[in-house]
C-alpha cells in the first residue's frame, strides 16, 4: 500500500465520520425545528448529505453503480421537497395560527360550559323555591 492509497483510505474514512456528524446535526434540526418548513428544509439537507454519503461509500468499496442510486435519490428528494412546499401552501396556516385557533375554540367552549352550569344552577334553585 503506497502513500496515495493510504491518504485516500484515511480521507474517505474521515469524510464518512464528518458526514455522520452532519447527519446528526441535521436530525437535531429536524427534531427541534420549530415549524414545518424548517423540518422540510432539514429533510432536503438530509437527502443532500445522503447523496454525499453514498458517493463516499462508492469510493470506499469501488462499486461505481452507486452513482445511479445517488442520482435517483436526488430526484426523489427534489420531488419530495416540491410536494411538501405545495402542502405548506395548501394548508394555508402557520403553527401559530393553528395554536391561536385551538386556544380561541377552547376559550369559547369554556365560556359556553360556564353559562350552561349557571343556567342549570339557576333552574335548580328555582325548582327548590317552588317546592318550598
Amino acid at each position: 500500500m503506497n502513500f496515495a492509497e493510504t491518504v485516500l483510505d484515511y480521507s474517505v474514512n474521515i469524510a464518512l465520520v464528518i458526514l455522520s456528524i452532519s447527519f446528526l446535526l441535521t436530525i437535531i434540526r429536524i427534531v427541534r425545528g420549530p415549524t414545518l418548513p424548517d423540518r422540510i428544509l432539514g429533510l432536503d439537507m438530509l437527502v443532500a448529505a445522503a447523496i454525499g454519503f453514498i458517493a463516499a461509500i462508492g469510493i470506499k468499496t469501488g462499486f461505481i453503480l452507486y452513482i445511479d442510486i445517488a442520482i435517483a435519490l436526488g430526484l426523489v428528494g427534489f420531488l419530495a421537497t416540491v410536494a411538501f412546499a405545495r402542502f405548506v401552501l395548501s394548508r394555508g396556516k402557520t403553527e401559530d395560527d393553528i395554536l391561536r385557533e385551538v386556544r380561541t375554540a377552547a376559550e369559547d367552549a369554556r365560556k359556553k360550559a360556564n353559562e350552561e352550569r349557571k343556567r342549570i344552577e339557576k333552574a335548580r334553585r328555582q325548582e327548590e323555591r317552588l317546592n318550598r
Binding site: 474521515i14 469524510a15 464528518i18 458526514l19 456528524i21 446535526l25 434540526r29
Partner: peptide, 13 residues
C-alpha cells in the same frame, strides 16, 4: 465535499 456538508448542517442548526 464533506467539509461543505458539515458547514451546511452547522448553518442549518
Amino acid at each position: 465535499g464533506s467539509f461543505f456538508a458539515l458547514v451546511a448542517s452547522i448553518g442549518l442548526l
